[in-house]
Design a protein around this nucleic acid. Structure first.
Length: 302
DNA sequence: AGCTCTTCCTGAAAGC
DNA sequence: TGCTTTCAGGAAGAGC
């Protein structure tokens, strides 16, 4: 599932080959994942791709009008095509003559014989076109970039929240771009149990978490992301970071650090993988281990 | 404020 | 073997 490192890899690939290209046609299959398909199909042909950036897990394609003479100063350029890959979304750049993969629902035909195709088996993704004036609003809904937030601010915020640390890491209004894989991998590296309450963590632990988040994300970008199900980059290549996961989907396997079996429990409604020894469970006020729903999936059974 | 449950969707894998 | 059920998960919304 595409999280920050996967989206960053896709964005870098698109930036290399998409800048300056003009869009000549747009076609859609199913559109239930698109906010404004009519507007997109109408306004994109004749625009040029000016930039490709990432906002958390969103891909942001900046578009400008092509016509050099017609410069209506008051008009709404640039426009931004915003794309979220959801669980199974893929954005690939391919020649128009290539066969169409199943579940491909968006076609952006370019002026060089290629097209940008959006494929999404489960259609949990999202696509929308917004104007320059609404971009700040859109960005404002999102939290800080995890790779940019300073340790001080990170600690200050987490110390003010009573939620479980895993829930906060996943909350896109807090930090934008972290998903289940990198939340679990960061918590393992910081040696923190996912159900710990943020405000109960020490400064030292929060600093460790901040560092772990940034290291894990940077490493994952270096390895071009994790391909655990459908993720591929803009050229259709898989990432390699899944080979370096320490806990994610390793339940029942030995911890790399202490050999204890990795466990999986539900925290914040998400399956959470951790080492019970390296990441000790929080205790509630009666002193007993807080109970977390065990997930049946460990070992061989189910 | 923060938690859980539900919804969206499909394919893989478990279960019978 | 083959059909049916369950499950995964990002995000949003409901309800507690």
């Amino acid at each position: 599932m595409p999280e920050l490192p996967e989206v960053e890899t896709v964005v870098r690939g698109l930036r290399l080959s998409l800048l300056g290209r003009a869009i000549v046609d747009v076609r859609f299959g199913k559109t239930d994942f698109v906010d404004n398909p009519g507007e997109i199909a109408e306004r994109l042909p004749g625009t040029r791709i000016a930039n490709v950036t990432r906002l958390g897990k969103f891909i942001c394609i900046g578009l400008e009008g092509c016509a050099p003479s017609a410069a209506p100063a008051d008009h709404a350029w640039p426009l931004y095509l915003i794309i979220h890959l959801g669980m199974t979304g893929q954005l690939t750049l391919i020649h128009s003559r290539e066969s169409v993969a199943p579940h491909t629902h968006g076609f952006f035909v370019l002026d060089d014989g290629r097209e940008l195709r959006y494929t999404d088996i489960r259609r949990f993704g999202r696509m929308l076109l917004i104007s320059e004036s609404r971009l700040a609003d859109f960005t404002g809904q999102l939290g800080k970039e995890p790779l940019e937030i300073r340790a001080e601010e990170f600690c200050r915020y987490f110390q003010s929240r009573r939620a479980r640390v895993k829930a906060l890491l996943l909350d896109q209004r807090v930090l934008r771009g972290i998903g289940n894989i990198y939340a679990d991998e960061s918590l393992f590296r910081a040696r923190l149990h996912p159900a710990r309450i943020a405000e109960n963590l020490t400064k030292k632990q929060l600093l460790a978490l901040h560092g772990a988040v940034q290291r894990v994300l940077a490493d994952a970008i270096r390895f071009r992301g994790s391909s655990i199900s459908d993720y591929v980059d803009s050229e259709g290549n898989r990432g390699a970071f899944q080979l370096r996961h320490r806990v994610y989907q390793r339940d029942g396997k030995p911890c790399f650090r202490c050999k204890t079996k990795i466990r999986r429990v539900i925290v914040a409604g998400r399956s959470s993988h951790f080492c019970p020894r390296c990441q000790p469970a929080p205790r509630n006020r009666s002193g007993s281990k807080s109970r977390l729903k065990p997930q049946m999936n460990t070992d061989k059974h189910r």
